[in-house]
Design a protein around this nucleic acid. Structure first.
Length: 555
RNA sequence: GCGCCCGUAGCUCAGCGGAUAGAGCAAUUGACUACGGAUCAAUAGGCCGGGGGUUCAAAUCCCUCCGGGCGCACCA
């Protein structure tokens, strides 16, 4: 019996009681009111609800008394072996071993689908993250957003949402010229220009550009600059894409900022100028001081924002506006932005933008702010040139450990990584603990096959050991954990869950053997336990996959 | 000055109002002639930054103060 099935049965029984007791004034119950949870203390049963305490006031009965009445009805439900009232009014349930154990087979049969729900079905979500300037390699901050954003996309999809992941390429503006000038200077053997990029990767790009275009050094400044910029851009973006691919991070759309600036020959409009017009129609645009403004203060921003400067040049904010509207035009009602804490000043203006466009800032746009990652206390700056690249981090840790260690913390938690610890590649990193548990399920299966333990019989009533009911209880939680991770945009919950599940599995393994010892013959207990071991492997694999981490069969 | 985030065990961090606040690491002590000891069992370690408030119930919600991070452009 899954928690969802149990909830449904409890709901039926509770509704019946309330109707009998309170008649028409009875509060209407939903599954959410039942709030089944796993008690921390195993003595409190398999599942617990605080329903009685929640609705006691509305019903007009003391919580404990109401709990006792509810419990009476719950005891009649098939598959429940015990119902107890405890503390201020908790109702605790213990399931029959057979009812609890049936889950193991169900999980194996569902396979990769186990953990998926329709919690967010019908939602169409645009998720933008990383969105780095293509003027240098991805650094550790980008790496965190890449890991997080990709995992958020995976849990959203697993919960039934339709998701598009986007990388916004900031390829317009003066920083691209600075980038090109840096490459050209390096190619000519000159020092880094003012406002240029000093990293050593610039010299590498310069060498590649010169190899492609040996004539570069002969050309006039303007032409040489354009070639250095455009070829450098293409090479750098290619590096970014392949870095992300190696990191198991997938983007559905690579959106170039230049597309927003490009003028359509037919209409004479760019997406940006069209966006300004559309905002003006909405009534939130005004002219002042030769400039064009959006009255973002109407929507909670602390000051109004210029969208077109006095000299006629549009601001960065204009591109943001056009991009936002473009996402809407492409059918995404809901837009999620994942930004670093150093950009959190944008939250108000982005929200205001949604409002000015006629959308609901509380519903249609969501800005997640991720705290920065530091290493040994030193923050890293791309401009300073002391970047730690995604590729370097990968070489240190491997994709699995890196994705896992970045994915197991919530975005708003500041994160300090210790490079010496990371380089040790020891068990300090919980990813090994989880992966080992998964590999162990395969090891168990291999040994079972060698000992003649097959899967011909599954008798859930034989799963009676304490560690088995604990393991089954945790296995039952995966769908809820995934749905919650999706709703809260917090994939770290998956990692924490995997660690708990791995621990539970190891404890079970120490207590319950799948293969017989010595002269013992193979029994249905062995066969049934093999199903439980398999089910744990499935749940661990599905969890790790949501984090973009591999689940090896052996290590 | 204003805004956002954070403050939980020695360290790194979980804990979207519930029962005795948890995990990993570090420390101490045990368990392989039994499916992989990359494991398990046990011990020790806490005014949940301080103070008010809401609630049957607060690490969690509200107010305030203290400490730390980040941000407050007609830059991109």
């Amino acid at each position: 019996m899954t928690p969802a099935e149990l909830s449904a049965l409890l709901l039926l029984s509770a509704t019946e009681l309330l109707a009998r007791r309170a008649g028409d004034v009875a509060p209407t119950l939903t599954v959410a009111d039942l709030a089944l949870e796993r008690p921390r203390n195993r003595d409190h049963g398999d599942w617990s609800t605080n329903l009685a305490m929640k609705i006691a006031k509305a019903v007009g009965v003391a919580p404990r008394e109401l709990a006792a009445e509810l419990a009476e009805g719950f005891r009649l439900i098939d598959g429940i072996s015990a119902v107890d009232v405890a503390g201020p009014g908790f109702i605790n349930f213990t399931l029959d071993a057979a009812a609890a154990g049936s889950l193991a087979k169900a999980i194996v049969e569902q396979g990769a689908a186990y953990g998926r729900t329709d919690a967010l079905v019908g939602q169409t979500i645009n998720l933008e993250f990383v969105s780095a300037n293509p003027t240098g390699p991805l650094h550790i901050g980008h790496t965190r957003w890449a890991a997080l954003g990709d995992s958020i996309a995976r849990v959203l999809t697993a919960s039934g949402a339709t998701v598009a992941t986007e990388f916004y390429i900031n390829d317009a503006g003066t920083q691209m010229d600075n980038f090109g000038a840096s490459i050209l200077a390096a190619a000519r053997g000159l020092p880094t220009p003012e406002n240029g990029y000093p990293g050593s990767y610039i010299a590498e790009l310069a060498a590649k550009v010169v190899a492609e275009r040996p004539d570069l050094l002969e050309l006039a400044d303007d032409e040489a600059l354009a070639i250095a910029r455009e070829r450098g851009y293409a090479l750098q973006l290619g590096d970014i894409r392949s870095s992300l691919e190696r990191f198991n991070v997938h983007f559905d759309v690579w959106f170039s900022e230049r597309d927003l600036h490009a003028v359509d020959a037919g209409t004479g409009q760019s997406l940006i100028t069209a966006a300004i017009d559309r905002l003006r129609v909405q009534g939130h645009v005004f002219d002042d001081d030769d400039a064009v403004w959006v009255r973002t203060t109407d929507f909670g921003d602390d000051k109004d924002r210029v969208i077109r400067r006095g000299n006629g040049i549009v601001t960065y904010f204009a591109a943001d506006a056009a991009y936002y509207l473009n996402k809407s035009d492409r059918g995404f009602a809901h837009k999620i932005y994942l930004l670093g804490a150093d950009h959190h000043g944008y939250v108000h203006r982005l929200k205001a933008l949604a409002g000015a466009a006629g959308d609901d800032p509380d519903r249609d746009i969501e800005v997640l702010i991720g705290q920065l990652v530091s290493i040994n206390g030193a923050r890293l700056s791309k401009r300073a040139g002391n970047i730690i690249e995604l590729d370097d981090l990968q070489a240190w840790l491997g994709t699995d450990a890196l994705r896992y260690s970045l994915g197991r913390y919530p975005a708003d938690s500041p994160l300090t990584l210790d490079p010496e610890l990371l380089q040790k590649r020891t068990n300090d990193n919980p990813v090994f603990y989880v992966q080992y548990a998964h590999a162990r399920t395969f090891s168990v299966a291999r040994n079972a096959a060698a000992s003649g333990v097959g899967r011909s019989v599954f008798d859930a009533s034989l799963l009676t050991h304490d560690t088995e009911s604990a393991l089954l209880g945790l296995l039952a939680e995966l769908p809820r954990v995934v749905a919650q991770a999706a709703e809260l945009r917090e994939p770290h919950r998956i990692a924490r869950y995997c660690e708990e599940l791995a621990g539970s599995y190891h404890r079970w393994y120490d207590n319950c053997r799948v293969t017989p010892v010595g002269d013992e013959s193979v029994t249905d207990v062995h066969r049934t336990r093999l199903w439980l071991s398999d089910a744990t492997g499935v749940a661990l694999r599905n969890g790790l996959d949501l984090l973009g981490v591999s689940a090896p069969d052996r290590m």
